[in-house]
């Protein structure tokens, strides 16, 4: 199918909410659609070329770089951004673990780190192996150098999410620092 020259209407399910918009042209990336058109500025633009990971979101449950995806190509998709992770005031276990383990400094790469960590845990490939976590998180640059805390946070969140009696939210995670 070909789109009209007047614009490209698309609908995305963002953080569980259906959001419709008309793109004036097809070159709008998913990241710019979120940031500039849906006012979801949590996802960050660090390089705009898939080289830093700050824009990481879940696309149909899978972590990707939103800067290297055309919004129009993902019409109908389900997107989870950092804004959609917490349950009201209750932080997601990964978010809570990042706070507890000081997995950030300036915070600019943090939404991407956290979405990447959520994706990594879902992928189930790294488990509780710190080396696999480090490798799996290497698509997210942190110029402040918070990698040690990030790795600890991902491992702690993984443990919390896989504990048999996990409670909603992350506040009960014991500090392992």
């Amino acid at each position: 199918m070909s789109f009209p020259e007047t614009g490209f209407p698309i609908t995305l399910t963002v953080n569980g909410e259906s959001r419709s918009l008309v793109l004036e042209d097809a070159r709008v990336t998913l990241l710019d659609a979120l940031r500039e058109r849906l006012d979801l500025t949590g996802s960050k633009k660090g390089c705009d070329r898939g080289q830093c990971g700050a824009c990481t979101v879940l696309l149909d449950g899978v972590r990707i770089n939103a800067c290297l995806a055309l919004a129009v190509s993902h019409d109908g998709a389900s997107i989870t951004t950092i804004e959609g992770l917490a349950d009201g005031d209750v932080l997601h276990p990964v978010q809570a673990a990042f706070v507890d383990h000081d997995g950030f400094q300036c915070g600019f790469c943090t939404p991407g780190q956290i979405m990447s960590a959520v994706g990594l845990i879902r992928e189930g490939q790294a488990g509780d192996d710190p080396e696999r976590v480090r490798e799996g998180m290497s698509g997210n640059l942190c110029r402040c150098g918070a990698y040690a805390g990030i790795t600890e946070a991902v491992l702690a969140a993984h443990a919390a999410m896989h504990a048999p009696d996990v409670l909603p939210g992350g506040h009960l995670i014991e500090d392992a620092a």
Binding site: G50, G53, I64, A69, E123, G136, S138, G139
Partner: peptide
């Protein structure tokens, strides 16, 4: 190759 995010796409 690349990163997990890129490999997923």
């Amino acid at each position: 190759g690349a990163s997990a995010q890129l490999r997923n796409a």
